[in-house]
């Protein structure tokens, strides 16, 4: 992590500690925390880290944006921060100026396609996070990026496993506020990769917190006359959780680095990192969540405890920008096409 990244990391951590503490949010009777937290993030430039100064962003760079996402995962932030970052990044690829406010991005599934005919959009996309809570949607349509007012779209209500909006969005007949041709070799595949990498980083952050609170609980909770963390069975479980978190952090970091330094979105090495991250972190999310719950026992399976804030998001984020199985089948086909020796050459070239 370079100096700029750790500054951004510290800034984000302070804001979430002050205004987005998971326990405080969990106890909150209403949504009064939402506006101050979002304003603080906007003022610090964290919502536009991936947008250049010229287009109204903070110009913090790819690495810093991923650093923000890792911290957001560590706090299980229930705001469209990743979505706004991704939308900003996509608009940037068309040179569209940031409209300000919260945004989301579409499509989020490789099977969903939006087309642009005579200045109007056509098609429906599934599983768009926070579509009903944001002002704008950045839409990839054919080889264009379109800025759309969320109010112009037909959004079907829906929630993810953490109770956050996850909507089907019918874009047919919608006239975008702005349209631009995509540059820098960015296409639907690149958007899918960028989204997958973002979710992988959030999951790595969330897993790190699940590990930390589980270890802390095991040190404090006494049963049979000792802290439960003194029992070998519990230690072995937590070691497994630590290993899953470590794998997630390692591949998510590696992927962020690959994207930060990439020369082309068509590079096989970048693809291998992103696909591996979405698959391996998704697997770690499943296994890590289970061990987290097992450690906390009954108290962890309550609304009053914060564990669910992390676990439910881990479960949900696994599915966004295509789940492990979809990525694995695609990666597997690519590997099969190159044969056994090609596999090793591909790994070492990445």
């Amino acid at each position: 992590m370079d100096e700029a990244e750790s500054l951004v990391r510290d800034a984000a951590t302070r804001i979430f500690q002050d205004l987005g503490d998971p326990q405080t949010l969990n106890n909150a009777a209403d949504d009064a925390w939402r506006a101050p937290l979002w304003s603080a993030l906007e003022e610090a430039g964290l919502t536009t880290a991936w947008v250049s100064d010229e287009l109204g962003g903070a110009g913090a760079g790819i690495g810093s944006g991923f650093a923000v996402l890792r911290v957001a995962g560590e706090f299980a932030v229930p705001l469209p921060l990743a979505e706004t970052l991704l939308a900003g990044w996509l608009l940037e690829q068309g040179g569209i100026v940031m409209p300000g406010g919260a945004m989301t991005v579409a499509p989020t599934r490789r099977a969903d396609k939006i087309s642009l005919v005579d200045g109007k959009l056509s098609g429906t996309v599934r599983a768009v996070s926070f579509a009903t809570k944001v002002d704008h949607i950045a839409v990839l349509a054919d080889d264009h990026v379109a800025l759309v007012s969320a109010a112009d779209c037909l959004c079907r209500d829906g929630l993810n496993l953490a109770g956050e909006p996850l909507n089907s969005v019918d874009l047919s007949g919608v006239t975008p506020l702005q349209i631009a041709t995509l540059q820098n070799g960015v296409d639907a595949k690149a958007l899918n990769m960028m989204g997958a990498a973002a979710r992988a980083m959030q999951m790595a952050g969330a897993l790190q917190t699940v590990l930390e609170i589980a270890v802390q609980y095991a040190e404090e909770r006494v049963a049979f006359g000792r802290p439960i963390g003194k029992f070998q069975a519990v230690q072995q479980n937590l070691a497994r959780l630590g290993e899953e978190a470590a794998a997630a952090i390692a591949i998510a970091n590696s992927t962020a680095h690959s994207i930060e330094t990439l020369e082309s979105w068509a590079d096989d090495g970048v693809y291998l990192d992103v696909a591996s991250a979405k698959i391996r972190v998704g697997e770690a999310a499943g296994q890590g969540s289970a061990i987290g719950h097992q450690t906390f026992g009954a108290i962890g399976f309550t609304k009053e405890h914060i564990l669910h804030r992390f676990v439910q998001r881990l479960w949900s984020w696994r599915d966004d920008f295509d789940n492990e199985a979809v990525w694995a089948a695609e990666l597997g086909r690519r590997v099969a096409a190159k044969g056994g020796e090609g596999l090793w050459h591909g790994l070492t070239a990445a």
Binding site: A250, S276, E330
Partner: peptide, 26 residues
Amino acid sequence: IGENPDVREAEGLGRLVAQLHTLRRM
């Protein structure tokens, strides 16, 4: 498995490669 795996083979293979690549990075 060859050049044209079915979905089960492809998914299984993809997971193994993702796990291996992660180990190598670590």
